[in-house]
Design a binder for these strands. Structure first.
Lengths: 235, 235
DNA sequence: TGAATTTTATTTGTCGACAAGAAATCGACA
DNA sequence: TGTCGATTTCTTGTCGACAAATAAAATTCA
């Protein structure tokens, strides 16, 4: 009865925290491509891994399915959902529009305290670029734009936009991975300009810069696809 | 071994159908205000009502919570979420934009078969208006705009838009209930015009008409709020 | 009487087990 | 040997029961 010595590390989780833990972790692993599209999700395996029953695992999976991050074959299996490369332009159309609308609204409705938050995120992004840390760039870039959206004070748009950023996070990850050092510096400057016009409450300029910023990103990614032909990801 | 004769009335549901049934029904009851905001949702009660375990009930509730239709107080209770009257203008901003963008895209990308579907929904809507059936008007109007969005062929926008339509369905219901007979005829005409310019692939006109259509609705609802002061709904 | 504290009650979160469904495996027959 | 059918296996969906957390009720004490 001694091998239980290490098993003593029973997590001792609190009551409602199990699902959130599983949800957050799976979500991150999916969005960071640790679990590439098509990876099978096994409930029992997860249950063992987290030392809990299948019930909370299941709840986390239902949530992930609700966000389209996993696909569930009835009675059969569940797996990480595919990245839809074919309809990718539709995603970018949506992303560009949301970039524009959130930035525009931020110029209209931001308050002073918002600018501080935005500046902080921008600093984080610049730091990530300088450190050439692709993963950090993704996270801080998303955080920055999310903060801008928050400043626009429209919960429907922010919810929408965050959802879109998440759905695209896997794509963006590919992008940042390929151009992992040189180009992002341009983003820092573009962000700087956007923040300036937001602070100046110049709505039209904000709209224009956001559009250019977004379309530049889209261009780069599409160039990437043309060059690479296809990507080193299991579909 | 025959007293099971009456027990024979077991629903005999199929395996995966329970959650969908509960989800659909609760969703409809919430959106149609049969369950007004604030109504408590009792798991055991639902379990008895549908003669099933709490597990599938719970899964349905998790989904509904994911769509924001119910709020869950940890360890305590779950209830139908409130309609946010304070930030309503933010909802309308989002709705107007989505009306515009989906209609515009429909003008750009629709195919012949889409028009038939759209026309069918428009006929349904006209019929509902003629019959002065408020509930049918809501359903058919949503179906029409949803079909237009589908014709735009951008799944991100259609998903977003449908979500928005659902979130606003409770509000729209109030609207249609008050102006339950005269005004909607105008919508029939406006819809007719919108469909015409979509068919003609006149993108700019589609955008303009959608904007006017949406803003007219918003105007009417806001007039309603000014007149009524507040609404006969338990917050 | 009123406030603080213990007790009870109700509802949720979690568990282990069982049954149904579908694919994979095996076997019979042509 | 190939095909069809039965069987096995493996995963999911559902169930009933228990434990934790919180609110309400009851009790104690000043």
């Amino acid at each position: 009865m001694m091998s239980t010595a290490d098993t003593n590390s029973v997590p001792e989780r609190k009551r409602g925290s199990g699902v959130k833990m599983v949800y957050d972790l799976l979500r991150d692993e999916i969005l960071d491509l640790v679990l590439p599209p098509g990876s099978p999700i096994d409930e029992v395996q997860l249950a063992e891994r987290f030392k809990m029953s299948r019930t909370p695992i299941r709840e986390a999976l239902v949530r992930l399915a609700g966000e389209g991050l996993i696909d569930t074959l009835p009675n059969r299996s569940t797996m990480v959902s595919n990245i839809d490369f074919l309809n990718m332009h539709t995603y970018f159309d949506a992303l560009v529009l949301m970039y524009r609308v959130t930035t525009r609204l931020a110029a209209e409705h931001h308050r002073l305290e918002d600018l501080q938050v935005i500046h902080a995120h921008q600093a984080d992004f610049a730091k990530a670029v300088e450190a050439q840390d692709a993963l950090a760039m993704i996270a801080t870039n998303a955080a920055l734009h999310s903060a801008i959206a928050e400043a626009g004070r429209n919960p429907y748009f922010t919810g929408l936009f965050n959802r879109l950023l998440n759905e695209g996070r896997r794509l963006l990850r590919l992008y940042y991975q390929s151009y992992d050092d040189r180009l992002p510096q341009r983003f820092v400057d573009e962000h700087e300009d956007m923040i300036k016009v937001i602070a100046a409450r110049d709505v039209e300029a904000a709209d224009r810069l956001a559009k250019e910023h977004a379309e530049q990103i889209v261009d780069q990614i599409q160039k990437l696809f043309k060059r690479g032909g296809h990507l080193s990801i299991a579909l």
